[in-house]
Amino acid sequence: MTSHLKGVTKSTMTDEARKALCEYKRENSSCTQKDLQLWLENKFHLKVSQGTISNTLKMSVDYLAANYLEKRKDIKRHKPAKYPDMEKVLYEWFLQYQDRVNMTGELILEKAKETMKILYPQQDQEHTFSQGWLEKFKLRSTQGIKNA
């Protein structure tokens, strides 16, 4: 696959590669982003842009956390929520009512639709809440919601 950057083929960095990059930068603080690009190419056979290096280093605290890789071992691609405000409200609702109500996937989907109508009335018609969306929402949320 070709990237929009001239001469750079699209590569997807794994969390392991991102963590290794952050550790290498921590141990070699004088390295430039260009040096880190070359290091990644030699060590992991990945060609990435300087923007990717920069974005990875910005999140180095997360990547270097002791349990970060364990929590994310099943995630193949990091895709943010399309409507983060709606998901935040939905998750807070879940936490508030999980002990009082039998939380089912169907109930969570219904509440997501209601919340979407309130927060994003102009996009309400174009967004569908499928079982796939529900599973990804559960993954984006904490472990507590997985049992619903």
Results as ranks from 00 to 15, higher is better:
K76A: 08
A66H: 15
E41P: 00
D15R: 11
I118W: 06
F44K: 00
K73N: 09
N42Q: 11
E41M: 09
L139V: 12
A65F: 05
R100H: 13
A148D: 03
S141H: 03
E114C: 08
A81Y: 02
T2V: 12
V8Y: 09
L46M: 14
D62A: 12
D124Y: 15
V101R: 04
A65R: 13
K82N: 04
A65K: 11
K138C: 07
Q122F: 10
D74Y: 13
K113T: 09
T128P: 01
E92C: 03
K76I: 07
T14K: 05
K113N: 11
S49M: 02
A20L: 04
Y63D: 05
E23N: 05
W133T: 00
Y68I: 01
I75T: 11
W133R: 00
C22N: 03
G132T: 15
Q125I: 06
M1W: 08
N42E: 12
I75K: 11
H127L: 15
D99A: 12
S11D: 07
R26H: 08
C31N: 07
Q96N: 14
I75G: 05
Q123M: 08
L5E: 10
M59F: 10
N55M: 06
E92F: 04
A66S: 13
E114Q: 12
I53Q: 01
Q131R: 08
W93M: 02
K136D: 14
K10M: 09
A81H: 04
L95Q: 14
W133D: 00
Q143A: 12
Y24D: 08
Y120Q: 14
D74T: 10
T12Y: 15
L36P: 02
F129G: 02
D124N: 14
D15S: 05
I75Y: 11
K43L: 04
Q143F: 10
C31E: 10
K6M: 09
L40W: 04
Y97E: 12
T128K: 14
Y97D: 03
N28H: 15
N42K: 15
L95H: 09
L119R: 06
G144R: 09
D99G: 10
V8D: 04
I118A: 11
M59H: 12
K25P: 00
L109V: 10
R72E: 12
Y97S: 06
E16N: 09
T52S: 04
S30Q: 13
E106G: 12
N28E: 07
G105F: 02
H78A: 12
L46I: 07
Y63M: 03
L57E: 00
L57C: 01
L5R: 06
V101W: 07
L64G: 04
K82H: 07
S30I: 11
M59V: 05
L119V: 06
D85V: 03
M1H: 10
D35C: 04
L21Q: 00
H45S: 14
F129D: 01
L139E: 09
R18S: 07
V8W: 01
V8E: 06
G7Q: 02
S54C: 05
T12G: 11
E135N: 15
K25C: 05
